[in-house]
Design a binder for these strands. Structure first.
Lengths: 194, 194
DNA sequence: AGCTTAAATGAGTAACTACTCACTCATTGG
DNA sequence: CCAATGAGTGAGTAGTTACTCATTTAAGCT
């Protein structure tokens, strides 16, 4: 329908939303507060997003896409699978350290029940490119001892804790150093057989 | 003050609460629903817990204590530090697989901002026994390459994803097998030097 | 049985929330 | 310069929520 709504205001609303959601949680954040911070009136928010849930969903989807981009950027068929997987983790961690608010919101949605079915599907299927990489690694004999669930758990979840610590100023080492340690320990942990 | 309140009802309320919190999230769960499921009237809940937040806090504290117990049970000064750390992880994972609702609620509180300060402190300090174990491992030359944050992230967070997958019936391997893989990959990931 | 004490009740309340809609006003095309 | 369009507004609404309190119910003691 109406596509005359300003892209600028939509962006302002979304930015205000991640900002508040990541520090207060999205249930504890009234829509009025979001529109206020975005510099628009209460009603305007609902011209850009049908419901609050629609806003959350849009936000989540856009973050999901951004992370998927980070994943895809790191995939280069010409280098060894091992290096590719490490690069993906590195790339994702870089993105997360650069976008801590988005990451915290993302984790919040991930760990909160009762999200739209559509959104839930995205959670479960996750990132297919990484899945393919995992399959490739398994079929080539690397990673033979590790099942998909443990692989994904080791790959994704520690990142969230690192970002939390970072946001609360509780990360005492250098970010680059931390990323490298996280990448290395993830890989070495998987590689071992038997 | 009044200690004539039945311990039975307190327990029923807490059980109803974790039950609902873990499936709906605690913001999306009205106190009425909790008291209803516990088989008491709406007002009774507030005789046992001053506020809803008090209930959440009590619940969180009790789960924290249960996990701390699991940690402490696994600590046996007579065996090598390496084995102790592995045992702690094993023990914690067992507890979590046996108490998935509590675990999911615990993760929810952990990853949600705006919790009471007291509760927050518990989050940051975490489990001192494990911390001591980490220090010991570092001072004995094992684990020298890994800083505390990455260690904790690798130790705790993957567990949450495994429990999630388990609760949604998306964990296709045997639980024991999964626990062993998770323990082994965690340790191997840390041990490596340089 | 009666009396006392306190646990349990649940209708009621004040506060808050997501969302609406009748209206204003800026922009644009003729 | 006027008219038409639709983006923007914000007071208002219907619904929900955490929490209260006057009252009822039950239990324990003599």
């Amino acid at each position: 329908m109406s596509r005359h709504l300003s892209e600028e205001k939509r962006k302002a609303l979304m930015e205000a939303a991640v900002d508040l959601f990541s520090t207060q949680g999205f249930h504890a954040t009234p829509t009025q507060q979001i529109s206020e911070r975005a510099g628009v009136s209460a009603g305007t928010l609902f011209r850009y997003f049908q419901t609050k849930e629609d806003l959350i969903d849009t936000l989540y989807t856009s973050i999901h896409r951004a992370i998927a981009n980070a994943v895809n950027e790191a995939i280069r068929p010409e280098i060894p699978v091992e290096e590719q997987i490490k690069n993906v983790k590195r790339q994702v961690l870089h993105w997360m350290f650069e976008n801590p608010k988005e990451t915290i919101f993302f984790e919040q949605v991930t760990s909160t029940p009762n999200i739209t079915e559509m959104t839930k599907d995205k959670l479960l299927i996750r990132f297919s490119a990484l899945d393919e990489l995992y399959q490739k690694a398994v079929s080539r004999g690397i990673l033979k001892g590790i099942n998909r669930e443990v692989f994904l758990a080791n790959f994704w979840y520690p990142n969230f804790m690192l970002i939390h610590l970072h946001s609360f100023g509780k990360l005492h080492s250098d970010i680059e150093e931390t990323i490298e340690q996280s990448v290395a320990s993830m890989w070495c942990g998987m590689e071992q057989k038997q």
